[in-house]
């Protein structure tokens, strides 16, 4: 149940935190009613600003995945997001596929990567 942050990554930290939590929820490692650490605890542990963690939690709350408990962290409330807009779901996928193609991977290699990632995600889910 580890969350990993990379300060050298181009993505902003709050996005990394949100993505990591979403991934853990998707994998089933954070089932419903799991409490998440307080903003202060997570910010101190990762060495980031309090607002960074607060923003990540808020974004996930807006998506319907978390419920922020005032001053006491957050709780996973659902494993389904509120909005399921296909266009916004396709965009990161399109971008990732384009990157892999530009990196010189063949379609077969790309398929293997995709299937492997899916397996990784579904491994612990029902």
């Amino acid at each position: 149940m580890l969350i990993i942050i990379d300060q050298n990554d181009s993505r902003p930290i709050y996005l990394q935190i949100a993505d990591e939590i979403r991934f853990l929820i998707a994998r089933g490692e954070l089932p419903e009613n799991t409490p998440l650490p307080a903003v202060r605890q997570l910010a101190g542990d990762l060495g980031v600003n309090l607002n960074t963690v607060a923003t990540a939690y808020r974004e996930l709350q807006n998506e319907g995945l978390l419920a922020i408990k005032h001053g006491a962290g957050a709780v996973v409330v659902s494993r389904t997001t509120l909005e399921k807009d296909e266009i916004s779901l396709r965009k990161p996928l399109r971008s990732a596929l384009a990157n892999m193609f530009l990196a010189g991977l063949s379609w077969a290699e790309i398929m293997n990567l995709v299937v492997d990632e899916m397996r990784g995600l579904l491994r612990e889910t029902r």
Partner: peptide, 11 residues
């Protein structure tokens, strides 16, 4: 370190 990890468990 630039890549850090912590458990997502409240203490």
């Amino acid at each position: 370190v630039s890549r850090l990890a912590t458990p997502l468990k409240p203490r």
